[in-house]
């Protein structure tokens, strides 16, 4: 209904779509770009793309993977164009503001740093699964890849993150009690 209204140019439907998906789009942009200002710019571009090509969306499929696919593509393009800068501190500062006081900040930083070191495909699969909550099938739709490929990417991403946590001494190995 919202999509039909947006296609007819209904401003209320357009606004409802923006409100419905802007948190997901912005969150994914922040995780992949690791820069809040860039994430805001890319989020606006993503919604321009969405409304330009909304008529090409296959209504038999869920909308969110389609939107996430556009977001990933825009982030990739942005990353390719952007001169790399040390953005991690900015991102961690932003994300730490939303945490509870008793959360281990150091562990959060390590996980985010580990994710930031991953290949972009692994990062994307990791964020879409653990942060956006998309199932394998929808990630595969968003990335236009087979489900098996997505599973492989996600498993490797997890193993690399966990290996970093082990290397950095973030895991206390409990010795077996005889």
């Amino acid at each position: 209904m919202l999509v039909r209204g947006a296609l007819r140019g209904n401003t209320q439907a357009i606004e409802a779509l923006v409100v419905r998906f802007q948190s997901d789009v912005f969150g994914l942009c922040v995780k992949l770009l690791r820069h809040r200002q860039d994430a805001e710019d890319v989020t606006q571009e993503v919604f321009l793309r969405i409304f330009r090509s909304l008529q090409r969306w296959d209504s038999s499929r869920p909308l969110k993977p389609w939107i996430m696919g556009i977001t990933v593509n825009r982030c990739r393009t942005w990353l390719a164009q952007r001169v790399r800068r040390p953005e991690l501190a900015d991102y961690l500062h932003d994300t730490a503001a939303g945490k509870a006081d008793d959360e281990p900040v150091e562990m959060v930083q390590e996980i985010q740093a580990a994710v930031a070191e991953l290949r972009l495909e692994y990062q994307t699969a990791f964020v879409l699964y653990h942060d956006q909550g998309l199932p394998y099938e929808e990630i595969a739709q968003a990335l236009k890849k087979p489900v098996g490929t997505v599973k492989t990417w996600l498993h490797r991403a997890r193993m690399e993150v966990m290996a970093r946590l082990q290397r950095r001494g973030m895991v206390e190995v409990q010795h077996e009690v005889p």
Binding site: Q22, S23, F26, G27, V30, K31, E40, T43, D94, T95, G98, K99, A100, E103, V108, D131
Partner: peptide
């Protein structure tokens, strides 16, 4: 336990 990143 991670809270979602809120947009401005």
């Amino acid at each position: 336990s991670q809270s979602p990143t809120m947009p401005p």
